[in-house]
Computed example of a mutant assay.
Amino acid sequence: MMTELPVDQVRTLLAVVDEGTFDAAAAVLHVTPSAVSQRVKALEQRTGRVLLVRTKPVRPTESGEVVVRFARQLARLERDARAELGMSGASEPTRVTVAVNADSLSTWFLGALTRVPQELRLCFELRREDETRTAELLREGLVMAAVTSSADPVAGCSVRALGRMRYVAAANPDFAARHLGGPLPDALATAPVLAFDRDDDLQDAFVRGLRGRRHGTSQVRHHVPASEGFAEAVAAGLGWGLVPEVQARPLLNAGRLVPLAPERTVDVPLYWQQWKLDSPALAAVAKAVATTAAETLRG
Protein backbone atom coordinates (compact mmCIF):
# COMPACT_ATOMS: atom_id res chain seq x y z
CA MET A 1 0.00 0.00 0.00
CA MET A 2 1.22 3.50 -0.81
CA THR A 3 0.49 4.69 2.74
CA GLU A 4 2.97 2.10 4.07
CA LEU A 5 5.88 3.49 2.11
CA PRO A 6 8.53 5.09 4.36
CA VAL A 7 8.33 8.85 3.95
CA ASP A 8 12.12 9.32 4.00
CA GLN A 9 12.54 6.85 1.16
CA VAL A 10 9.78 8.45 -0.89
CA ARG A 11 11.27 11.92 -0.42
CA THR A 12 14.70 10.60 -1.35
CA LEU A 13 13.37 9.16 -4.61
CA LEU A 14 11.78 12.51 -5.41
CA ALA A 15 15.04 14.33 -4.70
CA VAL A 16 16.95 12.00 -7.04
CA VAL A 17 14.43 12.56 -9.84
CA ASP A 18 14.39 16.34 -9.36
CA GLU A 19 18.15 16.69 -9.04
CA GLY A 20 19.01 14.18 -11.75
CA THR A 21 21.76 12.24 -9.93
CA PHE A 22 22.32 10.45 -6.63
CA ASP A 23 25.19 12.77 -5.76
CA ALA A 24 23.12 15.91 -6.33
CA ALA A 25 20.24 14.48 -4.30
CA ALA A 26 22.66 13.66 -1.47
CA ALA A 27 23.85 17.28 -1.40
CA VAL A 28 20.29 18.58 -1.18
CA LEU A 29 19.31 16.08 1.52
CA HIS A 30 22.58 16.55 3.46
CA VAL A 31 23.36 12.82 3.46
CA THR A 32 25.93 10.70 1.69
CA PRO A 33 25.37 9.35 -1.84
CA SER A 34 25.57 5.88 -0.31
CA ALA A 35 22.63 6.68 1.97
CA VAL A 36 20.62 7.92 -1.00
CA SER A 37 21.37 4.75 -2.94
CA GLN A 38 20.42 2.56 0.02
CA ARG A 39 17.09 4.36 0.50
CA VAL A 40 16.16 4.01 -3.17
CA LYS A 41 17.11 0.33 -3.19
CA ALA A 42 15.09 -0.24 -0.03
CA LEU A 43 12.08 1.45 -1.62
CA GLU A 44 12.43 -0.69 -4.74
CA GLN A 45 12.61 -3.81 -2.59
CA ARG A 46 9.52 -2.74 -0.65
CA THR A 47 7.50 -2.07 -3.81
CA GLY A 48 8.96 -4.99 -5.75
CA ARG A 49 9.48 -2.68 -8.72
CA VAL A 50 12.38 -0.94 -10.41
CA LEU A 51 11.63 2.75 -9.83
CA LEU A 52 14.54 4.47 -11.57
CA VAL A 53 16.40 4.07 -14.83
CA ARG A 54 20.02 4.73 -13.84
CA THR A 55 20.86 7.10 -16.68
CA LYS A 56 22.31 10.61 -16.48
CA PRO A 57 20.08 12.25 -15.57
CA VAL A 58 18.08 9.47 -13.95
CA ARG A 59 14.46 9.08 -14.99
CA PRO A 60 11.59 7.31 -13.27
CA THR A 61 10.09 4.14 -14.66
CA GLU A 62 6.32 3.89 -15.02
CA SER A 63 6.16 2.56 -11.45
CA GLY A 64 8.56 5.28 -10.33
CA GLU A 65 6.24 7.94 -11.75
CA VAL A 66 3.50 6.68 -9.42
CA VAL A 67 5.75 7.08 -6.38
CA VAL A 68 7.04 10.47 -7.56
CA ARG A 69 3.49 11.72 -7.98
CA PHE A 70 2.66 10.47 -4.49
CA ALA A 71 5.74 12.24 -3.11
CA ARG A 72 4.72 15.57 -4.66
CA GLN A 73 1.18 15.20 -3.36
CA LEU A 74 2.50 14.37 0.09
CA ALA A 75 4.66 17.50 0.04
CA ARG A 76 1.67 19.58 -1.05
CA LEU A 77 -0.47 18.26 1.82
CA GLU A 78 2.33 18.91 4.32
CA ARG A 79 2.69 22.53 3.18
CA ASP A 80 -1.08 23.08 3.39
CA ALA A 81 -1.17 21.61 6.90
CA ARG A 82 1.72 23.78 8.07
CA ALA A 83 -0.03 26.84 6.67
CA GLU A 84 -3.28 26.03 8.47
CA LEU A 85 -1.41 25.42 11.73
CA GLY A 86 0.61 28.63 11.39
CA MET A 87 3.87 26.72 11.69
CA SER A 88 7.31 27.93 10.65
CA GLY A 89 7.65 28.39 6.91
CA ALA A 90 3.90 28.84 6.45
CA SER A 91 4.43 32.45 5.34
CA GLU A 92 6.26 31.29 2.22
CA PRO A 93 4.22 31.56 -1.01
CA THR A 94 2.57 28.37 -2.23
CA ARG A 95 3.79 27.19 -5.64
CA VAL A 96 1.19 25.73 -8.00
CA THR A 97 2.44 23.93 -11.11
CA VAL A 98 0.12 23.71 -14.11
CA ALA A 99 0.52 22.37 -17.66
CA VAL A 100 -1.41 24.38 -20.25
CA ASN A 101 -1.53 24.48 -24.03
CA ALA A 102 -0.18 27.52 -25.87
CA ASP A 103 -3.50 28.69 -27.34
CA SER A 104 -5.21 28.67 -23.94
CA LEU A 105 -2.23 30.42 -22.40
CA SER A 106 -2.41 33.17 -25.02
CA THR A 107 -6.16 33.69 -24.97
CA TRP A 108 -7.98 33.00 -21.69
CA PHE A 109 -5.89 31.13 -19.11
CA LEU A 110 -3.89 34.04 -17.70
CA GLY A 111 -7.14 35.87 -17.05
CA ALA A 112 -8.23 32.93 -14.92
CA LEU A 113 -5.13 33.18 -12.74
CA THR A 114 -5.82 36.85 -12.00
CA ARG A 115 -9.09 35.77 -10.36
CA VAL A 116 -7.37 33.65 -7.73
CA PRO A 117 -7.57 35.54 -4.39
CA GLN A 118 -4.25 37.30 -3.78
CA GLU A 119 -4.39 36.61 -0.05
CA LEU A 120 -3.61 32.96 -0.83
CA ARG A 121 -0.12 34.10 -1.93
CA LEU A 122 0.28 31.62 -4.77
CA CYS A 123 3.23 31.42 -7.15
CA PHE A 124 2.36 29.88 -10.52
CA GLU A 125 4.77 27.73 -12.48
CA LEU A 126 3.28 27.12 -15.93
CA ARG A 127 4.50 24.41 -18.29
CA ARG A 128 3.50 25.06 -21.90
CA GLU A 129 2.67 21.89 -23.78
CA ASP A 130 0.25 20.73 -26.46
CA GLU A 131 -3.18 19.88 -25.04
CA THR A 132 -2.77 16.29 -26.22
CA ARG A 133 0.39 15.91 -24.11
CA THR A 134 -0.28 17.94 -20.95
CA ALA A 135 -1.76 14.87 -19.26
CA GLU A 136 1.64 13.20 -19.57
CA LEU A 137 3.19 15.85 -17.32
CA LEU A 138 0.40 15.20 -14.83
CA ARG A 139 0.97 11.46 -15.03
CA GLU A 140 4.70 11.92 -14.43
CA GLY A 141 3.99 14.02 -11.35
CA LEU A 142 5.66 17.11 -12.84
CA VAL A 143 2.55 19.28 -12.45
CA MET A 144 -0.39 19.41 -10.06
CA ALA A 145 -3.01 20.25 -12.68
CA ALA A 146 -3.38 20.51 -16.44
CA VAL A 147 -5.56 21.85 -19.23
CA THR A 148 -5.86 18.83 -21.48
CA SER A 149 -7.88 17.41 -24.36
CA SER A 150 -8.25 14.07 -22.55
CA ALA A 151 -11.48 13.29 -20.72
CA ASP A 152 -9.91 10.15 -19.20
CA PRO A 153 -8.59 11.06 -15.74
CA VAL A 154 -4.97 10.34 -14.93
CA ALA A 155 -4.68 7.97 -11.97
CA GLY A 156 -5.20 9.88 -8.74
CA CYS A 157 -6.72 12.89 -10.54
CA SER A 158 -10.17 14.35 -11.01
CA VAL A 159 -11.41 15.75 -14.32
CA ARG A 160 -14.01 18.33 -15.35
CA ALA A 161 -15.05 19.66 -18.76
CA LEU A 162 -14.08 23.27 -19.46
CA GLY A 163 -15.63 23.81 -22.88
CA ARG A 164 -14.52 23.80 -26.51
CA MET A 165 -11.91 26.01 -28.15
CA ARG A 166 -13.01 26.84 -31.68
CA TYR A 167 -10.57 27.16 -34.58
CA VAL A 168 -11.22 28.70 -38.01
CA ALA A 169 -9.32 27.97 -41.22
CA ALA A 170 -7.97 31.26 -42.51
CA ALA A 171 -5.37 32.82 -44.78
CA ASN A 172 -4.04 36.19 -45.87
CA PRO A 173 -6.25 37.54 -48.73
CA ASP A 174 -3.34 37.73 -51.21
CA PHE A 175 -2.19 34.24 -50.21
CA ALA A 176 -5.72 32.89 -50.76
CA ALA A 177 -5.94 34.51 -54.21
CA ARG A 178 -2.55 33.11 -55.20
CA HIS A 179 -2.77 29.57 -53.81
CA LEU A 180 -6.41 28.74 -53.19
CA GLY A 181 -8.18 29.55 -56.44
CA GLY A 182 -9.27 26.00 -57.30
CA PRO A 183 -11.44 23.53 -55.37
CA LEU A 184 -10.64 24.19 -51.73
CA PRO A 185 -9.90 20.59 -50.59
CA ASP A 186 -7.32 20.05 -53.33
CA ALA A 187 -5.89 23.56 -53.03
CA LEU A 188 -5.32 23.24 -49.27
CA ALA A 189 -3.55 19.93 -49.82
CA THR A 190 -0.88 21.58 -51.96
CA ALA A 191 -0.66 25.15 -50.59
CA PRO A 192 1.99 26.11 -47.99
CA VAL A 193 0.63 25.45 -44.51
CA LEU A 194 1.48 26.46 -40.96
CA ALA A 195 1.70 24.04 -38.04
CA PHE A 196 2.56 24.67 -34.42
CA ASP A 197 5.23 21.95 -34.37
CA ARG A 198 5.94 18.51 -35.82
CA ASP A 199 3.25 16.92 -33.66
CA ASP A 200 0.50 19.35 -34.68
CA ASP A 201 -2.09 17.39 -36.69
CA LEU A 202 -4.89 19.99 -36.64
CA GLN A 203 -4.40 21.25 -40.20
CA ASP A 204 -3.91 17.75 -41.63
CA ALA A 205 -7.07 16.48 -39.94
CA PHE A 206 -8.99 19.45 -41.35
CA VAL A 207 -7.89 18.65 -44.90
CA ARG A 208 -8.59 14.94 -44.44
CA GLY A 209 -12.10 15.86 -43.31
CA LEU A 210 -12.66 17.97 -46.43
CA ARG A 211 -11.24 15.46 -48.88
CA GLY A 212 -12.57 12.33 -47.25
CA ARG A 213 -9.19 10.70 -47.77
CA ARG A 214 -6.15 9.90 -45.71
CA HIS A 215 -3.92 12.44 -47.43
CA GLY A 216 -3.14 15.54 -45.40
CA THR A 217 -1.57 18.88 -46.17
CA SER A 218 1.27 20.08 -48.36
CA GLN A 219 4.89 19.13 -47.76
CA VAL A 220 5.63 22.87 -47.62
CA ARG A 221 5.11 23.18 -43.87
CA HIS A 222 6.23 26.02 -41.62
CA HIS A 223 6.49 25.36 -37.88
CA VAL A 224 5.70 28.34 -35.63
CA PRO A 225 5.62 27.15 -31.99
CA ALA A 226 4.01 30.26 -30.50
CA SER A 227 0.30 31.05 -30.45
CA GLU A 228 0.52 34.78 -31.20
CA GLY A 229 3.32 34.20 -33.70
CA PHE A 230 1.26 31.52 -35.44
CA ALA A 231 -1.70 33.86 -36.00
CA GLU A 232 0.62 36.63 -37.20
CA ALA A 233 2.39 34.26 -39.58
CA VAL A 234 -0.93 33.30 -41.16
CA ALA A 235 -1.92 36.99 -41.42
CA ALA A 236 1.46 37.78 -43.00
CA GLY A 237 0.85 35.24 -45.79
CA LEU A 238 3.41 32.61 -44.86
CA GLY A 239 0.78 29.90 -45.19
CA TRP A 240 -2.79 29.01 -44.27
CA GLY A 241 -3.70 27.59 -40.89
CA LEU A 242 -6.31 26.99 -38.22
CA VAL A 243 -6.38 29.99 -35.88
CA PRO A 244 -8.21 30.17 -32.54
CA GLU A 245 -11.48 32.01 -33.14
CA VAL A 246 -10.76 34.61 -30.47
CA GLN A 247 -7.47 35.50 -32.18
CA ALA A 248 -8.86 35.29 -35.71
CA ARG A 249 -11.87 37.56 -35.14
CA PRO A 250 -10.01 40.92 -35.01
CA LEU A 251 -7.78 39.90 -37.93
CA LEU A 252 -10.85 38.94 -39.98
CA ASN A 253 -12.56 42.21 -39.10
CA ALA A 254 -9.46 44.14 -40.14
CA GLY A 255 -9.29 42.33 -43.48
CA ARG A 256 -5.91 40.79 -42.71
CA LEU A 257 -7.43 37.30 -42.84
CA VAL A 258 -10.19 35.71 -44.89
CA PRO A 259 -12.08 32.60 -43.77
CA LEU A 260 -11.52 29.56 -45.98
CA ALA A 261 -14.47 27.42 -44.92
CA PRO A 262 -16.79 29.46 -42.68
CA GLU A 263 -19.24 26.59 -42.37
CA ARG A 264 -16.58 24.13 -41.23
CA THR A 265 -14.95 25.12 -37.94
CA VAL A 266 -12.96 22.83 -35.65
CA ASP A 267 -13.81 22.54 -31.97
CA VAL A 268 -11.23 21.09 -29.56
CA PRO A 269 -12.71 20.01 -26.19
CA LEU A 270 -10.67 21.03 -23.17
CA TYR A 271 -10.69 19.53 -19.68
CA TRP A 272 -9.21 20.44 -16.31
CA GLN A 273 -7.43 17.62 -14.51
CA GLN A 274 -5.88 17.97 -11.06
CA TRP A 275 -4.65 15.91 -8.16
CA LYS A 276 -7.37 14.60 -5.86
CA LEU A 277 -6.23 16.62 -2.87
CA ASP A 278 -8.12 18.68 -0.34
CA SER A 279 -5.86 21.64 -1.08
CA PRO A 280 -7.15 25.22 -0.73
CA ALA A 281 -4.65 26.39 -3.34
CA LEU A 282 -5.74 23.86 -5.95
CA ALA A 283 -9.41 24.43 -5.19
CA ALA A 284 -9.06 28.19 -5.69
CA VAL A 285 -7.21 27.76 -9.00
CA ALA A 286 -9.73 25.19 -10.24
CA LYS A 287 -12.65 27.52 -9.44
CA ALA A 288 -11.03 30.46 -11.25
CA VAL A 289 -10.17 28.32 -14.28
CA ALA A 290 -13.68 26.85 -14.54
CA THR A 291 -15.33 30.28 -14.21
CA THR A 292 -13.16 31.91 -16.87
CA ALA A 293 -13.47 28.96 -19.24
CA ALA A 294 -17.26 29.10 -18.97
CA GLU A 295 -17.15 32.77 -20.01
CA THR A 296 -14.63 32.29 -22.82
CA LEU A 297 -14.94 28.84 -24.36
CA ARG A 298 -17.90 27.40 -26.20
CA GLY A 299 -20.16 25.08 -24.24
Rank of each mutant, 00 (worst) to 15 (best):
T132Y: 13
T3Q: 13
L122T: 02
G141H: 00
R11P: 02
V98P: 06
E44G: 10
T21R: 06
D103Y: 11
R39Q: 14
E129R: 10
L202E: 13
S37Q: 14
L105F: 15
G181R: 08
G229C: 09
S150G: 03
V66T: 13
D267Q: 05
P192C: 03
E232Y: 04
D201S: 15
R128P: 15
P153R: 09
L188S: 05
R115N: 03
R211F: 03
A25K: 00
P244C: 08
D23H: 09
M165V: 14
Q118W: 02
L13T: 00
G239D: 03
L242T: 06
A102E: 07
P280Q: 01
G212H: 04
L74R: 09
F70A: 10
K41M: 10
L74K: 02
S63N: 13
V68M: 04
L210P: 04
A288V: 10
A233S: 09
A42L: 07
V10Q: 01
R79N: 04
P192E: 02
A189Y: 00
V234G: 00
P262A: 10
R115T: 07
P6S: 01
A261S: 11
D199W: 15
A187R: 08
R214G: 14
E140V: 01
P225V: 05
V58M: 05
Q219F: 11
P173L: 10
P192H: 02
W275C: 08
V220C: 05
P153I: 03
L110Y: 14
M1R: 12
P117S: 03
E4S: 15
A146E: 02
E295H: 09
L242R: 05
